[in-house]
Amino acid sequence: MSIINTKIKPFKNTAFKNGEFIEITEKNVEGKWSVFFFYPADFTFVCPTELSDMADHYEDFQKLSVEIYSVSTDTHFTHKAWHNFSKTISKVRYAMIGDPSGTMTRNFEVMREIEGLAERASFIVDPQGIIQSIEITAEGIGRNASDLIRKIKAAQYIAKHPMEVCPAKWQEGDITLTPCLDLVGKI
Results as ranks from 00 to 15, higher is better:
M111S: 01
F37L: 00
K63R: 10
L181T: 15
D182I: 06
D74K: 06
I130L: 14
N84W: 12
A145L: 14
L51P: 09
L181F: 13
G140Y: 08
R143K: 15
T75S: 10
Q171S: 13
A154F: 04
P48L: 02
E172I: 11
C166Q: 09
E164N: 15
E26C: 07
T88D: 09
N5L: 07
T103A: 11
K160D: 02
I124Y: 11
A155L: 06
G116P: 14
Y94E: 03
P167K: 13
G185L: 10
V165Q: 01
T105P: 06
T105N: 01
E67D: 11
T103M: 05
T105K: 06
T14N: 11
G140L: 12
T105I: 13
A159I: 11
K32H: 05
W170R: 10
G31T: 13
L183I: 13
T75V: 08
E67I: 05
N18K: 14
S34V: 05
Q128Y: 13
T137N: 02
M1H: 09
I130Y: 07
E115T: 14
F77Q: 00
S2C: 07
Q62C: 03
I158W: 14
A95E: 00
F37M: 02
T6E: 09
L177W: 15
A145I: 07
N18W: 06
K186T: 10
I136E: 00
F11L: 01
K91E: 10
E109T: 12
G102I: 08
A168D: 06
F61Q: 03
Q132N: 13
F77P: 00
F21C: 05
P179Q: 09
R143Y: 00
E26L: 04
K7N: 07
D74Q: 05
W33S: 05
I114P: 12
G129V: 11
Y58S: 10
T137R: 00
T88F: 07
F16Q: 01
A41I: 06
I141M: 00
R143D: 01
